[in-house]
Design a protein around this nucleic acid. Sequence first.
DNA 1: CATAAGTGTAACCAGAATAGTTACACTTAT
DNA 2: ATAAGTGTAACTATTCTGGTTACACTTATG
Lengths: 153, 153
Amino acid sequence: MAGNSRLATAIHVAGMLSFTDKLPQTSDNLAQSVNTNPVVIRRIVGLLTKNGIVKVKMGAGGGACLAKKPEEITLAEIYLALEENTVFDVPQLDETHNCYLSRIVRPVLSEVLQKAEEHLLEGLRRVTLADVIVKVRMRMIEQLNCTVIKKDG
Amino acid sequence: MAGNSRLATAIHVAGMLSFTDKLPQTSDNLAQSVNTNPVVIRRIVGLLTKNGIVKVKMGAGGGACLAKKPEEITLAEIYLALEENTVFDVPQLDETHNCYLSRIVRPVLSEVLQKAEEHLLEGLRRVTLADVIVKVRMRMIEQLNCTVIKKDG
DNA sequence: CATAAGTGTAACCAGAATAGTTACACTTAT
DNA sequence: ATAAGTGTAACTATTCTGGTTACACTTATG
C-alpha cells in the first residue's frame, strides 16, 4: 500500500477513457476497472482535470472523458499533473552547520539529482497515451493468437 | 523526514571519503558532516560495502574508505547499491479480476514505466563521483572569488 | 418538481517507509 | 586491559499512500 501507484492509476484511467471515447465514465466504473475506491479515482481525476487532460461532467449521467486526443497526451504530462514530490530528497543543511564542505556539497547534490530526474521526465515525455494503447491492443492480439494456436494444437 | 534522502546521503558520504582519501572515516565523523546519526551512516555504508564501493576497517582506528577511484564510481552504482524500490509501483490485478481490459493494461504499464525508470538510471550512470567532486571544487572556488570581490568593493 | 445518479471534498483509519535513537555484542589498535 | 570502532536489533516519531465513510452540491429525467 505504500510506494507510489498513482501514476499507474492515472495512466490506467486515462487509458480506459480513451477506449470508451466520448461516453463519460463514472468514478464507480473506473474504480472497478482499477480495483480501487471511487474516491481515489476522483482525487486523481481531479488533478487530471485541473491540468486539462480530462473533462468532467457533473450530475446524473456525468463522469469523466479525455479532454484531448491520446496522441496529444504524454505520460510526462500525466506525471506532472499528479504534483508528486521529487524522487530524490536532498535536505539542505542549516547555514550554521559546522562542516564547511558539507554546506557546499548539498546544493551540488540537489543540482545533480535534479538533472537525473529530468532524464526520467524525458523518458516519460517520449511516450504518449496513444503509444500505451497501441501496446495494449497488441497484447490483446497476441492473446488471441495464443488461443488460436491452442485450438489448432 | 519522509521522502527519500538516502541517495543524497550516500553520495555525500562517498564524496567525503574521496576528499579524505585513504584515511578511514568513522561513522561518527561522517554523521556530523551529513547531519544525521552514526547508525544511519553505518546502515548506508553497509550497503555501499556490500557492493564494493566502500571498504570498512573494524575496531579502533577503523572506519570507511572508498574501495575504488571516484572516476570509477557512478551515481547509478550508488543508487543501485541502496536497493531502493522502484520509483513507480504498478500493483498487478488478480487473475480473477472481472475487467478483461484492465488485466491486460497492468503489465503494459509495468513495462512502460520500467523503461522510463531506465532513463533515470541512465541519467545517473552518466555522472561519476569524480564529476560531483569537480562541481564541489568549482563551487568552493566561486565562493572564494566572491570573498575577494567583496574585499575589493 | 422530486428523485436518482453523479461529482467534490473533508475527515479519519491502517499500513508501510524513513530516519532517528538507544543499546549491546563484537573487533581491533595501543 | 582498555578505548575506539563497527554491525545490528529494537523501538519511536513522522509522513505518505490508499481505503473508506459521509455529506453537500449538481444535473438529468420522469
